[in-house]
Amino acid sequence: MNSGLRGAMRRIRLAGEAGMSTAEYAVGTIAAVAFAGVLLKVVTSPTVQSALTAILAKALKG
């Protein structure tokens, strides 16, 4: 294969990988936002809030 054709094929391959990186970042961002939403729901639940309040109160008395 001559160097011009080899370089062109390499550029095409790299261009295809650039799109995949963007898609992977998008999926990762969506997953992080979903996890943050679930974590927010858990932390703001009455059971967890009372447990956290008890832990903080005990630590401040300590």
Score class of each variant (00 low, 15 high):
31 A>I: 07
18 A>L: 09
22 T>H: 12
38 V>K: 01
27 V>A: 15
50 S>F: 10
50 S>A: 15
43 V>M: 07
22 T>F: 12
5 L>Q: 11
28 G>A: 12
37 G>T: 04
22 T>D: 12
34 A>G: 06
30 I>G: 09
59 A>W: 02
60 L>N: 05
2 N>S: 01
45 S>A: 11
33 V>R: 11
56 L>I: 03
8 A>F: 12
7 G>P: 06
36 A>V: 05
55 I>P: 04
21 S>V: 09
26 A>L: 15
52 L>R: 10
35 F>Y: 00
45 S>Q: 05
39 L>E: 10
48 V>T: 10
33 V>C: 09
61 K>M: 04
5 L>N: 11
33 V>H: 06
43 V>Q: 00
26 A>C: 14
4 G>I: 14
24 E>P: 02
49 Q>N: 00
30 I>F: 07
43 V>P: 01
20 M>E: 08
42 V>H: 06
7 G>N: 15
58 K>Q: 04
15 A>G: 02
18 A>V: 05
35 F>L: 08
24 E>A: 15
45 S>T: 09
37 G>E: 01
44 T>R: 08
14 L>V: 09
10 R>N: 11
16 G>S: 03
55 I>A: 11
46 P>E: 13
23 A>D: 07
54 A>E: 03
53 T>S: 13
32 A>T: 06
36 A>M: 07
57 A>D: 10
53 T>W: 10
56 L>A: 04
61 K>I: 00
62 G>C: 00
39 L>Y: 07
53 T>C: 05
11 R>K: 08
21 S>D: 09
4 G>W: 02
21 S>P: 03
29 T>F: 13
19 G>R: 03
58 K>N: 07
18 A>I: 00
44 T>H: 02
18 A>T: 03
56 L>Y: 02
2 N>G: 03
50 S>P: 00
4 G>H: 09
22 T>C: 12
8 A>D: 10
21 S>N: 07
44 T>I: 04
25 Y>T: 12
33 V>A: 14
60 L>M: 02
31 A>H: 09
16 G>L: 06
41 K>L: 10
17 E>D: 08
31 A>K: 12
2 N>M: 02
25 Y>H: 13
35 F>V: 08
34 A>K: 04
41 K>Q: 13
22 T>K: 13
55 I>C: 06
40 L>W: 07
11 R>L: 11
21 S>R: 13
36 A>C: 11
29 T>A: 15
9 M>F: 09
40 L>Y: 09
15 A>H: 01
17 E>G: 10
57 A>I: 06
10 R>T: 08
40 L>I: 07
45 S>N: 10
8 A>T: 10
40 L>D: 06
28 G>F: 05
